[in-house]
Amino acid sequence: MMESILVTIPFGDMIHYLSGYTGVLFGFAAVFVLLAVISLPEKPVEIVFGTDGYSLKETPVDLAKFQRFMAIACGIATIGAIVTGDIFNFTLFAAFIGVLNIGIVAAVKNKHVLSAAFSYGLVVMMGTVPLFAGAAIIAATTGTLSIWELAAAGGVPVIAKLLLLIGVLGEGMAPFYIGKAEITRASGAPYILMIHVSSLLLFLRVVEILLTV
């Protein structure tokens, strides 16, 4: 089930490509990278529970700069995961997104956010095992890592697909929702949002890969 290809960019053994489907994802990711570049962070209002009191919280400049760097890098890594035409390269991009997602919230001074980020970090580290194992099993059983060749030849074992899926779910933390929900409490809106953008797009891309190969 290979869609028609719009663009190809060859880099040695890896041929990056855009189809209609990944083109949409690419455009979406590009918009959010642009938004992370140009928009300033929010100034969240915190309400004091049970009273009328509230306080305005500003994101410190150094933290905002760091978060912006991480968010932009995360967006670029997401674009990389979307356009890549090589399974192993895709797994690396997935791991990259996982690391950057921790990075976006790592510098927030909030105990809840940090402990959620730490748990998430552990899941990200574990996620690399099924990811790399999945890619390696694909290479061993088919003799190639290129999504094009796999789409033509097929024969990828189900276990490899499952491992790839659970690996991506770990990196993007899709159904392991609670950690991500806690992470969202951190302030700094356009950057925090990139965590969701990257993990959703990563998930959409892996679905396409699993249906293609």
Binding site: F11, D13, M14, F66, M70, N89, L92
Partner: peptide, 25 residues
């Protein structure tokens, strides 16, 4: 470096960013 050089680019970038996180903290 050559045929699958893009892997190494990503890998180097991961290391770079992880160190950026650790160094910032």
């Amino acid at each position: 470096y050559y045929t699958r050089g893009f892997d190494t680019i990503v890998e180097a970038s991961i290391l770079f960013c992880a160190f950026a996180i650790a160094a910032f903290l």
